[in-house]
């Protein structure tokens, strides 16, 4: 009767721990009852057992019937979101890997082979990692948030009214998915760039075609302070683009949110740029030291002026783009009505 135990185990080990013992007991009873019916004298042969087990069918199928629901890592209610986020994450990761490769080649052309090898390594390890983490996040959401998801689903269904239907978006008011995804990828690249290559922000000095050093734009001591603002600004940018994707069209709320985010960004930028500590105070002197610039030359004068003006113009450009972003959204909402 060993095969009976093996069958019972094959069924119950697929079921939740709490039900195993009870179901095993019941199954054993059932199999014995079925054997009794077949064999009157009470001596069941191996063949009889086999026939009974065949009648009960494949253990996996029986376990599925006991469970009542199909098992999945990421259910249908999350799948669309999962695919979208996965696309964004993979595109962003690829972009980051690609950009770092290009930077490495520019920095150090002779060691292109090494750069290429590390590029391949990044592709082979980085992309699966991005895939795995996204999947892991969604699978956890599915696993832990399953009950809440179902509740939300039911509520949505019961409260639905035809008046809840969103209007068909006007072509002008639609958010272009490509644009939003490009935006997210751009922000992610910027963040990676700032975090991992803040050393390279500046004017690159080449000596005989070979990279020598960088004259930094930023004051190295205060780059961490600067980083915080950059994180906040780009982080909000990513949230903004995600909201655009989720909404699918321009709405007043979206414009309002954009406005709030952008105004915060503007304030943050003003603090960063207006703060003289942020900028490398020795920028001009270092340029002179690197041999790119001769003191008292005409270009020295020009550059000093440019360097002084740069902060002001940078601020103005940023202000303009951020404000335009708000106005553009507003116009789109107006047009689509």
């Amino acid at each position: 009767m060993e095969s009976i135990e093996r069958y019972v185990h094959a069924v119950t080990h697929l079921l939740p721990q709490s039900q195993r013992e009870d179901i095993a007991k019941e199954l054993r009873g059932l199999i014995e009852d079925m054997l009794d019916e077949r064999v009157q004298d009470g001596n069941a042969t191996k063949k009889d057992v086999e026939e009974v087990l065949l009648e009960l069918g494949e253990p996996r199928k029986l376990a599925n019937k006991y469970r009542g629901t199909n098992r999945y890592l990421i259910g249908p209610e999350l799948f669309d979101h999962y695919i979208m986020v996965l696309k964004i994450v993979l595109i962003a990761t690829s972009a980051v890997i690609g950009v770092s490769f290009i930077i490495e080649i520019i920095m150090d052309p002779p060691s292109i082979l090494q750069a290429f090898i590390s590029f391949i390594v990044s592709v082979v390890t980085g992309l699966p990692m991005a895939f795995a983490w996204t999947t892991f996040a969604f699978a956890s959401l599915q696993f832990w948030g399953n009950k809440q998801l179902k509740v939300v689903d039911l509520q949505l269904n019961s409260d639905w009214k035809p008046s809840d239907l969103p209007p068909i978006p006007h072509p002008k008011g639609q958010v272009k998915k490509g644009e939003a995804i490009t935006g997210i990828v751009f922000y992610i690249i910027c963040i990676t760039f700032f975090v991992f290559s803040s050393d390279y922000f500046g004017i690159w000095v080449f000596d005989d075609g070979k990279f020598k050093e960088v004259v930094h734009f930023f004051n190295e001591q205060y780059i961490g302070y600067c980083m915080l603002f950059i994180f906040l600004i780009f982080g909000f940018g990513i949230i903004k683009e995600c909201l655009k994707l989720v909404h699918g069209r321009w709405t007043m709320q979206l414009v309002l949110f954009t406005a709030v985010v952008n105004i915060f960004s503007i304030i943050g930028l003003m603090i960063v740029i207006a703060e003289p500590l942020i900028w490398n105070p020795n920028f001009i002197t270092q340029l002179v030291e690197s041999g790119l610039l001769a003191v008292d030359s005409e270009s020295f004068q020009t550059l000093s002026v440019i360097w002084e003006q740069a902060t002001k113009w940078l601020l103005i450009i940023f202000l303009f783009t951020l404000i335009w972003d708000i106005i553009d959204g507003y116009i789109r909402v107006r047009k689509s009505k």
Binding site: Q19, I23, E26, L27, L30, M34, E55, L56, G57, K61, L62, K65, Y66, G68
Partner: peptide, 12 residues
């Protein structure tokens, strides 16, 4: 009715 169908149904 098959036993394999009935037993899970009873539990449900």
């Amino acid at each position: 009715v098959e036993a394999g169908t009935l037993y899970p149904l009873l539990r449900r």
